[in-house]
Amino acid sequence: MAEEYAGPIIQMRHVDKHFGQLHVLKDINLEVAKGEVVVLIGPSGSGKSTLCRTINRLETIDSGEILFQGVKLPEEGKELAALRAEIGMVFQSFNLFAHKTILDNVTMGPVEVLHRPRKEAEAEAMELLARVGVAEQAAKVPAQLSGGQQQRVAIARSLAMHPKAMLFDEPTSALDPEMINEVLDVMVELARQGMTMVVVTHEMNFARRVANRVVFMADGQIVEQNTPDEFFDHPQSERAKDFLDSIKGH
């Protein structure tokens, strides 16, 4: 069964996508192995978010195929919901449920989707909240937390589903600088524990510490990919060089 599947967790083959006239993903081929951490990097508008979002089908694709654990993504309905339950997603803007307490944010998925008994789900949620360092905030609502705390709750909410892989779309870009590390630390820990991760981020230190591979995108294409040290120290393409100069500038 799926548990024994040993091939790449995520496979994208010849994926193309347009938004109207705009060609946002051009012949994307990408594989992510179990336990691998892939950092997606590239200029704004290059299609990183879109790529990420096609993996759990928040965006549909025009052609090509995407496989998750060797199985083509379902188009819609129950199968699609079940697939999404297996892929965690963390957004730039946290997107916690504003009307729910922190605890209820984390238990909603396990209770409603996995049909776990509430008590059990709450106990696990408290463990997860402790793990990301916000257990004391469990009874509050999202707006009462700092951005860094909210993002850590969002990570806990994803983890509560026991995902097989996690997608992070610029998880620290909306944070004040002093809060970036508290979120990155949680992500580093996750990577160390073997979570399969696709991370859109410009945090070079994070990439160097935990990424197995850096994938550089520009204009909807994968321009080059390499180990983080190779990529950051010896970029091959002009576009990557220009891009790295621009982000090192500040």
Binding site: A81, I87, M89, E112
Partner: peptide, 23 residues
């Protein structure tokens, strides 16, 4: 509510009816 919360709900696997009901 904002599209972000809806997308978050979809990405934890909630169905359309569950999103309507719970969010």
């Amino acid at each position: 509510i904002g599209v972000g919360q809806i997308e978050a709900a979809r990405s934890i696997g909630l169905s359309f009816t569950q999103i309507i009901r719970h969010v």
